[in-house]
């Protein structure tokens, strides 16, 4: 575990020496606000991310979906890591709660909650303060493995 922390710190620190314009632009704007579809936060998420270094950020995303009487809450804290060029990866946890309302008498509906993780690989496009990300990966938990594809659009104010 200590070796992993040291490796991440060294990798993150090395990014500060990176003279690429895109990287410098990222570290001067630490805050990222975005909306995301079908990503780590479920169907329609809103997210916030803070860039600790040029290569590393911490974020959280959340969503609420109500469709046909079914409700789903999702929250996802995560680590965002720049891999070089337009590529990035994210690792994090997902907490979700699902409630199926009963539309009939004599049945109480159903609720369930769960926690799991996710890992994604993504592509990012930055223009000025605007950021567009597309990512794909897997989510996992007590229901097994599930594929996920997300697209996010945000800005660094």
């Amino acid at each position: 575990m200590r070796a992993l922390v040291v490796a991440i710190a060294l990798w993150s620190t090395s990014a500060r020496a990176d003279e690429r314009e895109g990287v410098r632009a990222e570290v001067t704007r630490h805050h990222l606000l975005y909306v995301e579809a079908l990503g780590k936060a479920g169907p329609y998420g809103i997210g916030y991310e803070y860039a600790i270094t040029a290569r590393l950020g911490l974020g959280t995303a959340a969503s609420y979906l109500r469709a046909g009487g079914d409700e789903t809450w999702t929250a996802s804290p995560y680590v965002h890591a720049w891999l070089g060029g337009p590529m990035f990866c994210e690792l994090g946890a997902i907490f979700a709660h699902s409630h199926i309302a009963s539309p009939v008498m004599g049945w109480g509906g159903a609720s369930d909650s769960g926690g799991g993780g996710f890992a994604t690989l993504g592509w990012q496009y930055v223009r000025g303060v605007f950021v567009v990300r597309a990512s794909g990966g897997v989510a996992f938990g007590e229901g097994g493995l599930g594929p996920m594809l997300g697209i996010a659009v945000g800005a660094r104010p």
Binding site: F95, I100, G116, G146
Partner: peptide, 8 residues
Amino acid sequence: STEAVVGQ
């Protein structure tokens, strides 16, 4: 993804 996490 939500089904994988919740397992419902």
